[in-house]
């Protein structure tokens, strides 16, 4: 594989001893950010737990307004995109630049499809007036139904915002991969965005059963 010589050489920033230390520092920073994100989301999960504890019947009634098929397809999209993301990082580690780009593009496509489905779900809820309390005009048996949709839009909305940011980051990675900047000796941004993307997947893994599969 003589093509590895064509890669753009990465310069280690002057305040690091070597590439290894630079990579470890980036990773430590990323994990610190992610555990902070976990606590950030935890407030919403606790809010969810409180209201589900107080109004279990309302949650059961409310989940019938959501389509588990759409939620399930979105789960599959996100899991697949996590897999292609991890493969993109791995291909960079083995200097397979073309495969890195292909995997990143696949990740991007799945991420966009997730948002397309989310768009259809949201517009259907808007159409039926199933909105957070102040805007709620929908029909429902349970009087506390607006609380459920407050949680639904806050949690899936914040998650959707993360997906949107992820799309921007993946586009940036594709751009840099095309310029042949990532290879076995330097793939730090790929690895970090990868961690972020798996975290987004992680949040959805919990959101899916909590909103769509209330038995």
């Amino acid at each position: 594989m003589s093509s590895s010589t064509e890669f753009v050489k990465h310069e280690v920033a002057h305040h690091f001893v070597d590439a290894e230390q630079e990579f470890d520092s980036a990773k430590l920073g990323m994990w610190t950010f992610l555990v902070q994100e976990l606590l950030f989301f935890s407030a919403l999960f606790v809010a969810y737990a409180i209201f589900r504890f107080l109004y279990p019947e309302m949650f059961f009634e409310a989940h019938k307004h959501l389509s588990w098929v759409m939620g399930g397809i979105n789960t599959l999209f996100l899991i697949t995109s996590s897999f292609t993301m991890v493969m993109a990082v791995r291909c960079a580690q083995t200097n397979q630049n073309r495969l890195t780009i292909i995997n990143l593009i696949l990740t991007l496509i799945f991420a966009c499809m997730f948002l397309v489905i989310k768009y259809f779900e949201y517009s259907e809820k808007f159409h039926h007036g199933l909105l957070p309390p102040a805007l709620f005009t929908g029909e429902g048996v349970a009087p506390q139904l607006p609380i459920f949709f407050g949680l639904y839009f806050a949690m899936t909305g914040l998650h959707g915002l993360h997906v949107l940011i992820g799309i921007g980051l993946i586009l940036w990675l594709i751009f840099r991969s095309v310029r042949r900047e990532f290879h076995a000796d330097y793939y730090t941004p790929l690895e970090m965005v990868g961690l972020y993307w798996h975290f987004v997947d992680l949040v959805w893994i919990f959101l899916f059963p909590l909103f769509y599969l209330i038995g």
């Binding site: 594989m1 590895s4 070597d18 590439a19 290894e20 990579f23 599959l76 899991i79 697949t80 996590s82 897999f83 991890v86 493969m87 791995r90 580690q93 083995t94 200097n95 290879h183 076995a184 000796d185």
Partner: peptide
């Protein structure tokens, strides 16, 4: 191929990723 010894990250075998993916599905 990279010969730089200082950069010896463990590269995870594809089978781990593939099996995890199938298990998640």
């Amino acid at each position: 191929m990279s010969q730089q010894g200082q950069h010896s990250h463990f590269i995870v075998p594809v089978k781990y990723y593939l099996r995890t993916f199938i298990a998640l599905l």
